[in-house]
Amino acid sequence: MSEYKDIWVFVEQREQKLMNVSLEILGEARRLADKKGVKACAVLVGYEVKGLAEELIKYGADVVYVIDHLLLKNYTTDAYTKVICDLANSLKPEVILYGATYVGRDLAPRIAARMRTGLTADCTALDIDENGLLLQIRPAFGGNLIATIICPERRPQMATIRPGVMKKALIDEGRRGEVIEIKPVIEEKDIRTEIISIIKEARQKVNLEEADIIVSGGRGVGGPEGFKLIEELAEVLGGVVGASRAAVEAGWISSDHQVGQTGKTVRPKLYIACGISGAIQHIAGMGGAKTIVAINKNPDAPIFKIADYGIVGDLFKVIPALIEEIKEAKKKAMA
């Protein structure tokens, strides 16, 4: 097993643009590689993507393996599994990390099964233990438990990482690294699925992950009309609207607003939870917010335990008063 070394990151690009999650994981891989004294390597797969390699070096990669081929232009399970397994079998990385995206979560288990190794899904933290093993930390049972998982006897150790939880390294324009082009062995007959079209849906993008201020509503909001009040508060603060699973499942707001274990992980500067009781499943997605404000009529709601500030009261009275007060404060600040 000692022949296995280095930490790899599968770098996802779509239409020759790097996915944010890949840079986040690269930042973490850098930290882990330094701790172990090995290299952090990026595996960049696609067609005409070599130009992206320099950026990966600036974000922390020591080595970028570029696997470039026309048949790799769009993601297919068969092609990507084959080229990555081929490379991993010959170079023997100790760890491979993937983003827990719609691509990463399709690809990583297929690779794990082919390489007969373990895989941990949707990790929210990673570390290296005293024996040099990768500690893979993830929520389980709807965020009610946090489990630490290892893969002691098989290699590579593999995990998918939840988008939005790791921090990108600061870009270092002066960083130097090695770009190695790999010639993949791939033919059309290796790919058993045919992509007929890729359709972009023109839905309004809810960018919760990058918002500085999020105002979220839960069961206590009572219905779609209640969310108008949440929207209004978000608007005066220049924030984005979030929601708990209960509100999404009730059909009051679309699922792209959902924060929590089954929704998005956010870490804004300010998170205002309105009518949200604070189920662990929700806290799993927003516990990293810098400042948490809770508005809830139940003084025993668990959300108050994790809040920096709380108001016990009826949100239909508190929020309109809060909106007025914020407008006042902004006026004063302008004067």
Binding site: P139, L145, I146, A147, I150, C151
Partner: peptide, 10 residues
């Protein structure tokens, strides 16, 4: 291949 070595509550 994988082992859960610890569980904690958040």
């Amino acid at each position: 291949p994988t082992r859960v070595i610890a569980t904690t509550t958040p």
